[in-house]
Write a protein that binds this DNA or RNA. Sequence first.
DNA 1: TCCATCAGTTGAACACGTTCAAGTCCCCGT
DNA 2: ACGGGGACTTGAACGTGTTCAACTGATGGA
Lengths: 230, 230
Amino acid sequence: MESKGAATRALILETAMRLFQERGYGKTTMRAIAEAAGVSVGNAYYYFSSKEQLIQGFYDRLQQEHAEAARQVLANETDLARRLGGVLHAWLDVAEPYHQFAAQFFINAADPASPLSPFSEDSEASREASIRIHADAVHGAATKMDPQLLEVLPELAWLGNMGLCLFWVHDRSEGRTQSHKLVDRCVPVAARLIKMSRYPIAKTLIREVADVAVEFGITRRTGYTKPRSS
Amino acid sequence: MESKGAATRALILETAMRLFQERGYGKTTMRAIAEAAGVSVGNAYYYFSSKEQLIQGFYDRLQQEHAEAARQVLANETDLARRLGGVLHAWLDVAEPYHQFAAQFFINAADPASPLSPFSEDSEASREASIRIHADAVHGAATKMDPQLLEVLPELAWLGNMGLCLFWVHDRSEGRTQSHKLVDRCVPVAARLIKMSRYPIAKTLIREVADVAVEFGITRRTGYTKPRSS
DNA sequence: TCCATCAGTTGAACACGTTCAAGTCCCCGT
DNA sequence: ACGGGGACTTGAACGTGTTCAACTGATGGA
């Protein structure tokens, strides 16, 4: 049983999340978190190496909710565009309740040096799981496409999700309707491009873009070949 | 004559830059800057509202150097790809000496809430000047293209520069050769797409992408209609 | 039963960015 | 020559994230 430490850790995390929601990330002090949780400041640092690290737990939770929501959307859908769009809309729905306070640190997303970045090692597990959602969306579609594109498409779709996240963070529209509209406008274009990838004219260009992305480490060529067990 | 304050301001800025170069942004304290400059901490805050603001001056300087370098490149070149590439290579050359310490705060680029962001109001003048460089590159080319694309291309090119900046920040290769290679690989693809924009098949798709970008405020439709005076 | 060990816990102390009330200095009108 | 006012300057003090040497208490082996 490792319950003692785990319980304290969970208590601190829950308290931090609540205070972040109530007052915002910036205005929530480590002292306030410790006091509200009934522990000492040092104790919080025993479990979380920094204030930022308190956020990683939130990321994980969000990712899991997204995976679940995406599973339901993908269950009865074979159209590529609707699958890609469904996954993104699911993300927007899952993230919506956290918009106000999530925006305060999703900012770090673009900084690979930050442990909060989706590109950092600390987030590797969470990131891989997230890419797998997009891999499912791509693989489960009936659409035919260039096999070389298929290899990079899951990661590109995930990058698209990151881009959407960046837009979403600064989306002040009611209920994030702008973000939803953006998805509805972009996904068909992307789907059309993907379908075009089978035909010579587009294939050359698309492969070149994909090659460049791989060559410069912007994405990898692992198609996440549809294993799935659950 | 406003030399007294201006001199102090310049002194503080120069000192800060030097220390940032020597020790890095994070390890340079405001106290250290003040001490090295022979002024008080409060005095530094009289001229710069925060530590981050000390960076804005650096941005401005970099932008001016880039404008000058780009002007020379564009003077005797009419090929679109070489103009676009030339501007980007010029940026890489100008930025190279500052790579190590620039990387420490270019990070903020993705955060529109940060005053350091190229999207913030504080950087507006600098940003407009930078977009104009890309507008020159586009307008001065002999290449024909879809007029609707022309309207958004300068800002899209500037966004490409921002993307390059993001890549460059994390480019650990000697002399940033990877970044230069990336430019050489991407620019021809972009140029080909631009040329294709005159033909119906591509035009539809490209206009759709451009429309989405404008509609969602990712870019504007101001072509910066080639004024130029210098 | 006793004690050694070590995960868990403490809070004072540190270094930092930032603020501010209190100065000092210099220019200008009288 | 004087004095008022505003630009400029000061450094102590504040609140923050983070560290660390010391303490506590439970657990398990002799």
